Simulated scan of single mutants.
Amino acid sequence: MSILNSIDVAAKYIREGKLVAFPTETVYGLGANALDPMAVAKIFELKERPSFDPLIVHIASIHQLQDLVLNTDERVHKLTEKFWPGPLTMVLPKSNIVPDIVTSGLPTVGIRMPSNEIALDLIRISDCPIAAPSANKFGRISPTTAAHVRKQIPNVDYIIEGGKTTVGIESTIIKLTDKGFQILRNGIITQEELETVVPFDGETAIEKLSAPGMLKSHYSPRKKLLIADSSSLDLDKSKAGLISFSGEVENGFCKVIRVSDRKDLKDYAVNMFEAMHSFEDDNEIELIIAEPVCETGVGRAIMDRLRKAEFNWRQA
């Protein structure tokens, strides 16, 4: 593994079929040439990711979108004009050049254009679309710094150091239907924002596992994590860390990380995974408690991540 400051060198390795971890505005991605099935297979192997979980393809131009999908209608153009580059992934019918391994055999592919300049430059200089899930072991905490990548997948070929990500949670994923759009994964771009462009379809059944992040368990630390409620707040706090938002339930905890000084949900999203990593690495902490928020706007995405992070721990 090497940490590179040269995007030119990183792009060379992408073209050679190797894996490069790189920053986006959401989380760090583990990238490979999306048109090279053997390179994409290495992503699944290194992440220990099940083959039924499709990947997102990252592009740097609308021209690439037209190559990767069968057709785009006016709604797609309106959404790209408003939200791209940015943390929005659209699931669209794929063209034949997209290998089936990228889409887990589905006839659709998730595509987004990131706003992070390092990511865009890497795609442009590599001269290919880049398939990239989060740069971590499958099901574990998403990486928002290069250090998080090194901790979980130290044997990745190369890491581009790009500082801390600015959004902190994965992109919103949508799929268009005859009635409008469905949300397959909540993110920083909210339903309300999307509805200013396309109607929301709350009626059409959502296909299972048609996009990343749809499993019940995901984003999980190695230490027990629970969402704060009457039962979890009654547990012994002497070796517990609190991910705090309101500042109202901090008494008695061994350590507290407050994710926002101004009770801003976007701050929570930016700092949530970093707080999980911090407590996971802290030898004094045996239990992580995360404060819940109202499920409006960005709060939907936050609670989605917290529920999936605690899922296996709640079942234990």
Rank of each mutant, 00 (worst) to 15 (best):
I3H: 08
V9G: 01
A10P: 08
K12I: 06
K18V: 08
K18T: 05
F22G: 07
P23Y: 02
T24F: 05
E25D: 04
E25W: 05
T26R: 03
T26A: 14
T26I: 06
Y28Q: 13
Y28P: 08
D36V: 05
A41H: 02
E45N: 14
P50I: 05
P50D: 09
S51F: 13
S51L: 13
I59T: 04
A60Y: 11
S61T: 15
H63T: 10
Q66E: 15
V69P: 04
V76E: 03
E81C: 01
P85T: 09
G86D: 07
G86K: 07
P87N: 12
P87W: 15
M90F: 03
L92I: 10
K94T: 12
K94C: 12
D100Y: 01
D100M: 03
V102Q: 03
L106E: 01
P107T: 13
P107E: 13
T108E: 05
G110A: 14
I111T: 05
E117M: 14
P133A: 09
S142P: 04
S142A: 04
R150K: 11
N155P: 01
N155H: 11
V156W: 04
E161S: 13
T166G: 11
V167A: 07
G168F: 00
S171M: 03
I174V: 11
K175C: 08
K175G: 15
D178Y: 06
I183M: 11
I183A: 07
G187T: 11
E192A: 14
T196E: 15
D201H: 09
G202R: 02
A205E: 15
I206L: 09
K208T: 10
A211E: 00
M214K: 08
M214L: 11
P221C: 12
R222L: 09
L225R: 01
A228W: 00
D229H: 06
D229C: 08
S232E: 01
L233A: 05
A240K: 00
I243E: 00
S244M: 02
F245N: 10
G247L: 12
G247C: 12
G247M: 13
N251L: 08
G252K: 02
G252E: 07
K255F: 04
V256N: 11
V259N: 05
V259L: 13
K266R: 14
V270Q: 15
F273N: 11
A275N: 12
E280R: 02
E280V: 03
D282A: 09
I285K: 00
I285H: 01
E286G: 09
I289H: 02
A290T: 05
V293I: 14
E295Q: 12
I302C: 04
I302K: 00
D304A: 06
K308A: 10
F311A: 13
F311G: 02
R314H: 03
